[in-house]
Amino acid sequence: MTPLLEVSGVSKRFGGLLAVSDVSFSLGEREILGLIGPNGAGKTTLFNVVNGVYKGDKGTVKFAGEDITKCSPNQVVHLGLARTHQIVKPLQDMTVLENVTVGACFGREYLALKPARNVALEVLERVGLAKSAEMSARSLTIAGKKRLEVARALAARPKLLLLDEVLAGLNPTEITHMIGIVRDIRDGGISVFMIEHVMQAIMSLSDRIVVLSFGQKLAEGKPEEVARDPQVIEAYLGDPDIAEKLKENN
């Protein structure tokens, strides 16, 4: 079976900094793939190359059998690859419902306004924002804005969802809720590729994990394998907290 997403030999350079260096991996249907690594490892840059915000300097990205290396972000969405942002980007002066309707209108199915609205309402229900549908996006809490990011991406009816730190900045209750949403997404048949710093969460959610450090792929495998990998533990030693958590997970 061909993988849904296939990244091979991707590099991205900013001036003198090699942010992503020769990274390859793949992701299958209905899989949750985690992407972890110390701060500045190039995780978000890798996301940006995958969904076309940046053009990689080298390498190819294939999605659902198509070469999307040169595609712009809006083309990628039409093929069924949606994403959220680490730093939320709500359309501030539009309502929550309008925000999500944009996602549905210009997503994979390129729906007309009315069906898009219905999809948006359904998605808002799923992420627990239905009550806030008529509020302006500006007035949401940070947790609400994170959910809005997820809802907008989901409304595009993607085959693959890139989640960039959707748990960051949330309190434990909100984290539990968001984890539920992610599981629900996968159970609905959508693959997930997620960046996360909350170790426990990503270890329990992911089927497999890719570890990035200084732009290079350090390790790849099942969560428990990755957590035992001495190289990974060393990479995190600069961050003793996380190294500790990795050990706990063993």
Binding site: V53, P73, A82, K89, L91, V102, R152
Partner: peptide, 19 residues
């Protein structure tokens, strides 16, 4: 709707699929 998305945040609009 696509135009309003551009007005609010052009980068977000692209990522949401607006050409």
């Amino acid at each position: 709707l696509g135009l309003f998305a551009i007005r609010e945040d052009e980068d977000a609009a692209v990522v949401l699929g607006v050409n």
